[in-house]
């Protein structure tokens, strides 16, 4: 039994990845905070004291109650209530869920687009490369947020308010995914250019494998670590973009709020002194984005991939 092969778990525990994680306090803290937030968001229906989507549970008499610890607070609403009388804690839990869903969804979409176009551009080279990278350059020079705002505006104008509200989650995933694919495509292309010159690719060619097989089965696995790093940071960017779009009224409707639309709906009441409706979701958003960014920084240091710079 002692000669049995090393299990995956043991290999993971021996790895440099685990070793450097254990020694980095910032990484551990960020990971724990992120884990707690993701779990809280996933289990929001179980954890939340109220269901913010259920109109029957909302009482307008409870509107704009402050968080516990301030004058006039009701212990039933630990973080206070918003202008419609919804429990802010529950709304934030559900809102984090929506924000995370859009963040992950948008990154999956942009990774799919970015990997495909990056592989094609890097491996095929020539005209394909020139055209794809020109499009990426132009799109990036307009800044991803600008592209997302314009696409969102056009979608909203063509679908109308009501229709847009119903399919807003998918729309936002699509808009942010399409707006940000060049980031990943550039990274993938840079790694593919480096990998393509290596012997194993020549070997695969000599063995007569087809181009798609070489691209996806041989080169792609070797470019995964930079993709992993940039995808982490991109989740944070996608969450910020979603919040910005929702804040502009081009994102999630107030009936099904994300963190961004919560901030927006609370902003209308900040002048009347109800700062908690906008600032508490804002704090949650900043913490969420910050821990993802810190994890991304740490991942980049550990994996030290050939990231595209510039």
């Amino acid at each position: 039994m002692t000669t049995a092969t090393v299990s995956r778990w043991d290999r993971f525990r021996e790895s440099f990845f685990w070793y450097s994680f254990k020694r980095d306090k910032v990484a551990i803290a960020s990971f724990l905070v992120l884990l707690a937030m993701v779990l809280a968001a996933v289990f929001a229906p179980l954890l939340a004291p109220a269901d913010p989507y259920d109109l029957a549970q909302i009482n307008i008499m409870n509107s704009e109650l402050p968080p516990v610890g301030l004058d006039g607070a009701d212990p039933a609403f630990p973080l206070g209530t918003d202008a419609q009388g919804r429990d802010l804690l529950s709304t934030i839990l559900y809102g984090t869920r929506v924000s995370l869903m859009i963040g992950f969804g948008a990154v999956v979409l942009q990774a799919a687009l970015g990997i495909l176009f990056g592989l094609l551009a890097g491996y095929l080279g020539g005209k394909v490369d020139a055209i794809l990278m020109r499009i990426a350059d132009v799109q990036l020079s307009f800044s991803t947020l600008m592209v997302a705002i314009i696409v969102g505006a056009v979608f909203k104008a063509s679908f109308g308010n009501l229709m847009f509200g119903e399919i807003a989650i998918y729309m936002l995933i699509f808009i942010i995914g399409v707006a940000e694919w060049p980031q990943i495509a550039r990274t993938v292309r840079a790694s593919v250019l480096a990998e393509k010159k290596k012997e194993y690719v020549d070997a695969a060619k000599v063995m007569g494998f087809g181009t798609p097989r070489i691209m996806f089965r041989h080169i792609l696995p070797n470019t995964l670590s930079p993709i992993f790093v940039i995808a982490t940071v991109q989740i944070a960017n996608a969450i910020i973009s979603e919040a910005a779009l929702s804040f502009l009224g081009l994102g999630m409707p107030e009936t099904q709020p994300s963190l961004g639309s919560l901030i927006k709906s609370g902003f209308d009441y900040i002048q009347s002194g109800s700062w908690w409706i906008t600032l508490i979701p804002g704090l949650v958003l900043v913490v969420l984005v910050l821990v993802i960014n810190l994890l991304g920084d740490w991942l980049r240091d550990v994996m030290n991939p050939r990231l595209y710079k510039g």
């Binding site: 944070a236 910020i240 919040a243 910005a244 804040f247 901030i263 902003f267 900040i270 002048q271 002194g273 700062w275 906008t278 600032l279 804002g282 958003l285 900043v286 984005v289 910050l290 960014n293 810190l294 920084d297």
Partner: peptide, 22 residues
């Protein structure tokens, strides 16, 4: 500046309004 990158511009604006306007 690491924290600053994680704060969306509209949130900075709202905090500034709360602090220096209200």
């Amino acid at each position: 500046s690491t924290v600053g990158i994680s704060i969306p511009v509209f949130l900075t604006a709202i905090v500034l309004i709360q602090l220096f306007s209200i």
